[in-house]
Design a binder for these strands. Sequence first.
DNA 1: TATGAATGAGAGTTCATTCAT
DNA 2: TATGAATGAACTCTCATTCAT
Lengths: 205, 205, 205, 205
Amino acid sequence: MKKSQSSKEKILRVALKEFAAYGFGGARVERIARQAGVNKAMIFYYYSSKQNLYRIIIKNSLLELIPKIQEAIAVSKSPEQFFENLPKVYIQYFVKNQAVMRMIGFELIQDPGNITSVVRDIFTNIPESPPDLLKNKISIWYQKGLISEPDPVHLILNIIPLCIFSILGKPMVEAILDIKIKNNIDFIDKRINSISNLLKKGMLK
Amino acid sequence: MKKSQSSKEKILRVALKEFAAYGFGGARVERIARQAGVNKAMIFYYYSSKQNLYRIIIKNSLLELIPKIQEAIAVSKSPEQFFENLPKVYIQYFVKNQAVMRMIGFELIQDPGNITSVVRDIFTNIPESPPDLLKNKISIWYQKGLISEPDPVHLILNIIPLCIFSILGKPMVEAILDIKIKNNIDFIDKRINSISNLLKKGMLK
Amino acid sequence: MKKSQSSKEKILRVALKEFAAYGFGGARVERIARQAGVNKAMIFYYYSSKQNLYRIIIKNSLLELIPKIQEAIAVSKSPEQFFENLPKVYIQYFVKNQAVMRMIGFELIQDPGNITSVVRDIFTNIPESPPDLLKNKISIWYQKGLISEPDPVHLILNIIPLCIFSILGKPMVEAILDIKIKNNIDFIDKRINSISNLLKKGMLK
Amino acid sequence: MKKSQSSKEKILRVALKEFAAYGFGGARVERIARQAGVNKAMIFYYYSSKQNLYRIIIKNSLLELIPKIQEAIAVSKSPEQFFENLPKVYIQYFVKNQAVMRMIGFELIQDPGNITSVVRDIFTNIPESPPDLLKNKISIWYQKGLISEPDPVHLILNIIPLCIFSILGKPMVEAILDIKIKNNIDFIDKRINSISNLLKKGMLK
DNA sequence: TATGAATGAGAGTTCATTCAT
DNA sequence: TATGAATGAACTCTCATTCAT
């Protein structure tokens, strides 16, 4: 019974990496099975289809990420804290969970409807509507004259891209500038700092 | 002769959309052929393999995009202009060429090495080194005390993500905030504005 | 378990015939599958590619044939016995295993390097070097004044062609002479005899 | 008009090599066209199909070879001369025309009926029946007590295989004996000699 | 004669999925 | 739970052949 448990979970762990590396279309059930050390048929026994396995992984990933973000938003009593906490939480999570980040990336490009429906699904199980909480917060800050961007959509779209793309886009920017960054840990720290400064200088009044 | 020309090019046009919609692994040669109104074998006649077709499209796309960016950089005599021109050019291009944007996105997630090598390849055919020109510009602006971020990597990583992700991330942010944006043209204009303001307030001294 | 065993082996048996009948290029995987009564995909499941299946069959065939020849050489205490045993063993084997003979024939025409490398490969797994044993035998017989051809290459090339080609060349010689041989068993016996006599009279001193 | 002539013939020359190298199934029309420096469609314009091209080449080859053999037989006034002339003519022809030899080899393995029908076809256009001439010659020699093998089929099958296989089988025998023959011209001379001696000692009374 | 484009059938191969045990 | 064998549809790619010019 123990072994089955571990098999079932190992499949999840391995499949996440596979989907992140190749996307849904490029991922191979057989490769997942081999790397998880289980028989191919077990994947279907536990998860019934490749599609379903994919959905479960997406959902699990968001179920792990979203509360962290909610928390970071909740503890931010001022926009200053908000502009510091959000990049830090996002980037640190994505650095540690690059496979999750890649899967989310794939989904956004290929079928945003998919991921947004999962997000909405998760939100409906939370008593206080996270969208409302966030919108209220922003609205209050703006009314108090603390921030310069009143539209929550644009405010959020000024933050999240900087977080997600900071890791994904690094190799491309290295190519564009013909620079090779060696120390990745330093880079991440500087990245968080640079984004926080940009957001604070750029959107605080 | 005319028909062949159109066949060869039609394949390119259709394939770009297919790859953008499904990624390399999920794209189907047969679907490309059907939509281009050509025999499946013609794709191999002209492009010899799916892989090769993909590479050519990536390269063509970048060959079209990069000069526009170079131009936008070149005409920017001040960092102020720079922070205005770059988002405008990027976003307007991506709005019109969403398939290109999606393909670049896929590549960055799946195999950044691939796209960076194409970028480098294109750069070597330009007499004045684009990386050097850009780095010099930034360095001079910083020495003159015009901008607050001295590191070109971080400066660029504060710009490009905002441009690429503004279109890709829109549906997700709509889900997060439970808002549905109707007028897309207005949205794009506001997006460009919001980014320019953020960058100017956030990185000009 | 039993059925799978039989499937795997049945493929081998059927494929040998197919390759013998049509050569590698002309052989059809689908025909092999149909005749073996298995799903086409099983051929790749067990043998991974048409090429690989072909190689395995060639190797198996030689692994069966070569020891018989080695044995026939080993038991020949005099050149007289040698000139009797070798044609008998060769021809009787090829009569029973015409498919093997044809495959070897194809290989010798198309890519002799291929088959010679397999032969060498098999030899390296035999403790006493078969080439050396054979060369020694011939050398001793020549020194004792028993045979007239000192060069082992020419001696062997005076034997093997007569054996292989006796079956393959029969229809052509029938055409050349406008004769139709009815009783094949008699023919084979006479063939073995005629060759033995030729070799004994022609190469014994 | 001249160019067309040369194209038509160049196709024949190149196709012979192609068929000899890969067999009918493995030969590629496109490769023939490229190597002949003509458009693929021209092959069908001149020869209407791959099959037909193949047949024509087989026939042409035999039309060139057979008269040489007939001549060698005709000039042989004694079995001694016969056993000297035949190997010499055969082997020297095949050394110079290895592609022809290979094509004949392929045909004999794959579909002997094909080549025998062509042989018969050629013979019907010769006034004196070659089979009869040959059979008579052998019969007379035997009646005169000059040769030991009365059956023409076996007599011929004691000769031709040694000639054809001497070139084809060389690499394999080199592998069997672990010997590498350097000088090919010497080898051929020795081969002809060894065969002639074998036949003379072995079949002359 | 000559060409490049086009075609359709089918080749080998892959893959998610299911079955029997 | 677990396995190896099996399946069928679909995939990329090939190739002899034909068409339009």
